[in-house]
């Protein structure tokens, strides 16, 4: 009973982290969330336990997070991804910081004070502008694999800006750019800049900055562009895609200890 589990069932991917009593990560698992969240969560747990050589009974407590957080039957309790991303980042950063989490379906800005306490947060409006779903749509329109975007954007030599707020309008704007003979790599980088603009519109971010989530994990250029736009380099945690799950695992450890305290 010496280990703790955090599982983040997101809109696109399910991420699981197992930690030991010292908070050290001993196993991770990643799968597409799919449509059967409970099965996906179970598969992630089985995989992580096997890779760490552990059994279910070795997990003292599990906390779920993400959109599918209420679909993990074996999780003891749940917290929102806002709480978990904050918790995960603060574990590494230990200073007042604003966290930008770019997820598949939504973006969050989470402000933490010097003790890790959340002072405020913002979620994007319900539209998907500036989220991972936006980049997926752009890739689809340009007949590209999402995994290629970062490599392509790195080759860009021209600043191209997309003006539209709406994902559908931006996709139409891209078609016009293609017709005008603009290069694919410049258009992709323009789409990355659009993501950053949408984040900057969400809130005023002063002080230190950190990023988390799958989109920055797969697109390091996005981190560079965020740094350029905000005028300061954001802190990037190890394995940014797993920060929410890691935060959930830390909550699992913390809550077990609280319960154990007489």
């Amino acid at each position: 009973m010496s280990h703790y589990c955090g599982i983040d069932v997101g809109a696109s991917a399910a991420k699981l982290v197992l930690i030991d009593g010292d908070g050290k990560i001993v196993a991770r698992a990643l799968r597409r969330s799919g449509v059967a969240y409970a099965e996906t969560a179970e598969a992630c747990l089985t995989e992580a336990l096997a890779s760490a050589g552990l059994r279910k009974e070795d997990v003292a407590h599990a906390v779920s997070t993400g959109y599918g957080r209420h679909n993990v039957p074996w999780a003891g309790d749940s917290s929102t991804e806002i709480a978990c991303h904050g918790k995960g980042i603060f574990h590494y950063y230990q200073k007042a910081v604003s966290v930008i989490d770019i997820g598949a379906q939504d973006n969050k800005v989470i402000h933490l004070d010097g003790s890790g306490r959340r002072t405020n947060f913002k979620m994007n409006r319900k539209c998907a502008a500036g989220t991972g779903a936006f980049l997926e749509e752009i890739a689809y329109r340009m007949n590209l694999d999402v995994g290629e975007l970062d490599r392509l954007a790195e080759k860009s030599t021209k600043d191209l800006s997309l003006g539209s707020f709406c994902t559908v309008f931006a996709a139409t704007e891209i078609l016009a750019r293609i017709r005008d003979g603009e290069r694919v790599e410049d258009i992709v980088k323009g789409a990355f800049r659009s993501v950053v603009k949408r984040v900057m519109e969400m809130d005023v971010i002063e002080g230190d900055l950190a990023v988390s989530g799958g989109v920055v994990a797969h697109n390091p250029l996005l981190v560079t562009l965020i740094g350029e736009s905000f005028g300061r380099r954001p802190f990037v945690p190890p394995e940014p895609q797993f920060v929410g799950a890691f935060g959930a695992a830390l909550f699992a450890r913390e809550r077990t200890r609280k319960e154990a305290t007489p």
Binding site: Y67, S79, T80, E81, I82, A83, D106, R118, N120, F121, M123, K126
Partner: peptide, 14 residues
Amino acid sequence: DEQTRTNIEAFVEQ
């Protein structure tokens, strides 16, 4: 529904 539920839950957590 989903975004609002998470937003409210996160607010009460805060």
